[in-house]
Amino acid sequence: MGAYLIQRTLLMIPTFLGITLIGFLIMRLAPGDPAELRAAGGLGAAAGGGISVEKRGSVDEAVAQWRAQYGLDKPLHTQYFVWLKNLFTLSFGDSFKDNQSVWNKILERLPVTVKLNLWSIFVVYLVAIPLGIYSATHPNSVGDQITTLAAFVLFAVPLVWAATMAIVFICGGDFYYLFPPGGLESLDFSEDWPLLKKMRDHAWHLFLPVVLLSYDGFAGMSRYMRASMLEVLGQDYVQVARAKGLSEKIVIMKHVLRNSLIPQVTILASILPGVIGGSVIIETIFSIPGLGQLGFESVLARDYPTVLALFTVSAVLTLIGILISDILLAAVDPRIAFGRRQQ
């Protein structure tokens, strides 16, 4: 198993380099110079052109200095290698926007996004697995068709619409004040509150973002569950279990369910790449200080180091997710041998 792990990890290196290279090139080749932008930000409208020639000269000087400070004056490939070298010491450099360490900024925001997404994955499994079980044990019944259609329709509901409707109708109070308009805790939140009150406040704030992040996952997951369960149900050993006189409940819960859960494990890996991207909309709408919001703000401010760091973090998360789901798959299913992964 050790050898397998090493092999898998080595294969991820080119993928990882590819992702960072794409991110790097996009940031560097896009029009718009962060140094100019920063100069413009610092000097107000002065850099825009309504400025005398000699003053313009000193602006240029400042821009050049600043470029040199961040290594933006070097050729592209040198910049990339410097960036890679720094990566080994887990240094993503300083943010162009506020000179804070990018790594600290990310560490600060990571728990929020991870919490949001873990809850959402939990909710997806919590709803979709029972739905899938029901559909598979009552195939082609009216109930099966209705749940399938409902999940399918939910899947087509655009996130931006669902979120806007929530903001308009049930948050903030133009119509119903059921949920807070945003943030992670109430304005008067204090650490002195009793634990139960703190938890309630958290749940109240997290509920809508988590539901909105989850609802479109129900369709896919319940379909997968249904399909894999139907496949297991058709196998001989299930017939044997029934012939032994086991109750249907035990057959389903003990014999069928376990084996049909195996494929669901791998789906975890395909969810991860979307984590930061999917969080952008939700975190922006509900002003939740997570990675998605950080990413969107950094993109708008052309904060190269932060955006690139987010690319890297989410790529690493994804690759780790793939690795973990491979290992889990082999761990749950002894029939899958390490190193002989089916295509």
Partner: peptide
Amino acid sequence: SRLFEVMLSIPTFFLLITIAALLP
């Protein structure tokens, strides 16, 4: 296929936002 893997592991929507916000 390696290229496919890169594109699959890349956070596509974030990539999209990045390019769209950087370009006019």
